[in-house]
């Protein structure tokens, strides 16, 4: 056992070295100093405000990852997660718009709107699930299609029925009055509520996958659909349910984007957290709790990479290069380890 652990550590260390090594080569190729760049990227995160900004991205990213871990467990590649975040944001915006002039308590309206976002996300996921289960459409293609539809719908709403009075702009709907924003920590852009929702989400998923019979059976469906069916697990119901849960969690991510970050609906409301969440989920496999630091690391790369255009006049998409390389090499290393390590 000890030997295996050391072995794994060795391979993962190699993967990290390779990822950072190749990313550094990319930097050298554009004439930048990798050491300086890494220093500026991570060094910029040393303030309270910066850590808070990282957590602002971390919360929705973690929720999307949490949802994806459920569909991963069921053996599904729910690429539609982006659309589920977006549709969740639409649901939240809808409820806020409908109720913002009502006499109800603002806090209650926010809670209701987040719930609506979860419901909307689940609904969008259910569509991908239904396409998969009853239509035989692979969830990758169904999800991708639904992502486009969700974006198109957002653009329609932003330019159409929900436009700012007298304008027509991609910059989004009219911001909601301040009382409909989730309260922030003093002097920061971070809402404690966003953190709470995210942590509850990931703990829930961790418990579901590690500690329940449901999680076990879901993994059985994911590992071997046919065998699970023969063992009497209601397989398609499990798959649908995993879509619904993932959609609800992604919808919560969209709801946070509206209530805690942008305070309005914008066309790119999902901020790519769905695709990023796919990478985090791939890295942590079934280990939901591990998503907490990994998602933090990915969010930190995103926030830190803003230093690249400011300080080095380089494109900030370098963070995406590094994230992609990390996923690639860690998966590769795991594959190599399994091939190269003699079976005990």
């Amino acid at each position: 056992m000890k030997h295996t652990t050391l072995n794994r550590i060795g391979f993962q260390f190699l993967a990290l070295l390779l990822a950072f090594g190749i990313a550094s080569l990319v930097l050298l190729a554009v004439g930048a100093s990798p050491a300086q760049i890494y220093k500026d990227m991570f060094g910029s995160l040393g303030t309270k405000g910066k850590i808070a900004d990282v957590l602002v991205s971390w919360a929705p990213l973690l929720l999307a990852t949490a949802g994806l871990l459920i569909t991963f467990a069921a053996g599904l590649w729910n690429i539609g997660v982006e659309g589920q975040i977006t549709f969740g944001a639409i649901g939240t915006t809808l409820v806020l718009r409908l109720l913002q002039n009502s006499a109800m308590n603002a806090g209650f309206i926010i809670a209701l709107s987040i719930f609506a976002g979860m419901l909307a996300g689940a609904l969008w996921a259910a569509l991908a699930g239904a396409l998969k289960t009853f239509g035989g459409v692979n969830e990758i293609f169904g999800g991708l299609g639904l992502n486009f539809v969700a974006t198109a719908l957002t653009i329609y709403l932003v330019f159409g029925p929900w436009k700012r009075p007298g304008t027509g702009s991609m910059s989004g709907t009219q911001p909601f009055p301040e009382q409909f924003n989730l309260p922030l920590f003093e002097g920061l852009r971070l809402s404690p509520w966003a953190l709470i929702v995210a942590v509850v989400g990931i703990v829930f998923v961790s418990f579901l996958l590690q500690g329940t019979y449901f999680g076990l059976r879901l993994k059985a469906v994911g590992k071997n659909f046919r065998a699970a069916y023969l063992l009497g697990i209601p397989t398609w119901q499990y798959m649908m349910f995993s879509f619904l849960l993932c959609g609800a969690l992604s919808g919560a991510a969209g709801a946070l984007q509206v209530t805690a970050v942008y305070h309005r609906l914008i066309p790119s409301i999902s901020s790519g957290y769905g695709y990023l969440g796919l990478m985090v989920a791939m890295l942590v496999n079934y280990q939901a709790i591990a998503a907490i630091p990994v998602a933090f690391f990915f969010a930190a790369l995103n926030i830190g990479s803003i230093q690249l255009p400011i300080v080095h006049k380089l494109d900030s998409s370098f963070s995406g290069v590094l994230q992609g390389l990390l996923v690639l090499f860690i998966l590769l290393a795991e594959g190599a380890r399994q091939r190269l390590t003699p079976k005990a």
């Binding site: 794994r8 550590i9 220093k39 630091p293």
Partner: peptide
Amino acid sequence: MRTIVTRFAFLALALMLVI
């Protein structure tokens, strides 16, 4: 559990190393 610890440990370690 082992994978959690190792994966997390190494991403964190990498970050610390770099910094």
